[in-house]
Design a protein around this nucleic acid. Structure first.
Lengths: 207, 207
DNA sequence: TGCCATCGGAACGCCACGTGCTCTAGCCTG
DNA sequence: CAGGCTAGAGCACGTGGCGTTCCGATGGCA
């Protein structure tokens, strides 16, 4: 870079950078979030640089740091504002299908463009307790609650033993999925989900 | 720093740095590993700097980089050369006790000085596939095999249903423990281990 | 229309990284 | 035992990203 001559060059037209229309408020937020996810899928979390995000969004680093104090918080926000949230608990009338459906919902998220974001976020989470709290509240707890609800309905139908209605047991599915996701870079296959459900969760919860 | 006068100071004795006795081979390795673990417990993985390790070991950065190409590899080696390995599978005659014993072994390691190392290593693992392979081979697989062995003996005694002798099921314990360890910065309590065993693993494997 | 919060852009100081160089300690060979 | 050669210590350097600060411009709002 900087290859340009260094003498009286600026003759090079008054490109006069400050030009394009300037965004504020929501428009700017949206542009930054989009740029963050684009950059994330392009180079991954580990290689994501604040400056590149700013450039891609045609924003300034100052605008980024005014809103987020770190890369992790930016990415957490970007992901959170982009993903739909884990949605409602499936209710097919069969616990097995509901659990599988719930896991598939997570897996789809992880296999999608936000997957790389989540991966990096988890790495960051390990180092940053505050961020861990944010991630737990935003991503982990809703998942556990979803499975608890599924189990509860299964118990009502007599498919699930009542003593299985615990946070610990409801966490098993998400935790195994998360662990698999962290340990393998490839997309989570449906095969794996089925294995988790049929080999672990179902034997664990049924009457 | 650098508070010393800046003029003709060097009168300050010919400290003549290249002096002390110099170590090579195993002695040097040992000093570096020790310094790495000390530094790890002192400031944690995220804040561990190669230069500080070098200083603490009274070694040079060059000596470090000549042996390890990154912080992650250094730490992985340091931990691996320090921990005893996960040891033999317990054999008390009771699956529950054996499983609990196995988990306690891991938990002790994680609660000890290497815990912080493992934590940081796992974070790094997420970004570095090669390192992930190393960690899997050195730390994860031996654990799974240990539990498989425990289950196998339990099956022989009729305590464990034979269909539970799978890698997937043997992995559940270590994976839940790992997940808990990553999600909480506090030491893993025995209470948690008991909960995992009694609420998840035992209902899952018994006849 | 005029004001002012905020934007984009660029430069800056900082710090850790990883490398290269010099000088020297300690082993190994003859 | 002497000489040489490998490898270690210490230091300085270039590099790159971070996070901050300043400036000029801009657009919403009164």
């Amino acid at each position: 870079m900087s290859s340009v001559g260094e003498s009286c060059e600026s003759a090079s037209v008054a490109i006069d950078h400050r030009k394009g229309p300037r965004r504020r408020g929501d428009a700017l937020y949206a542009a930054i979030f989009e740029a963050t996810l684009d950059e994330l899928t392009a180079v991954g979390y580990a290689e994501l640089k604040m400056e590149h995000v700013a450039n891609r969004a045609r924003a300034s680093k100052g605008s980024l740091y005014r809103r987020w104090s770190s890369r992790a918080e930016l990415v957490a926000d970007a992901v959170h504002h982009t993903v739909p949230g884990c949605g409602e608990a499936p209710d097919t009338g069969s616990v097995r299908e509901d659990i599988l459906g719930g896991l598939r919902g997570f897996a789809n998220l992880l296999n999608g463009p936000s997957g790389e974001a989540v991966r990096g976020l988890m790495a960051e989470t390990i180092r940053n307790p505050d961020l861990m709290e944010v991630v737990r509240t935003r991503f982990v707890e809703p998942g556990v609650n979803l499975f608890l609800e599924v189990l509860r309905r299964g118990a009502v139908r007599g498919e699930v033993r009542p003593s299985a209605l615990t946070t610990r047991i409801a966490s098993v599915g998400p935790e195994l999925l998360r662990q698999h996701f962290l340990a393998h870079r490839s997309p989570v296959s449906d095969q794996v989900l089925i294995e988790i459900v049929d080999e672990v969760i179902m034997p664990l919860v049924r009457m």
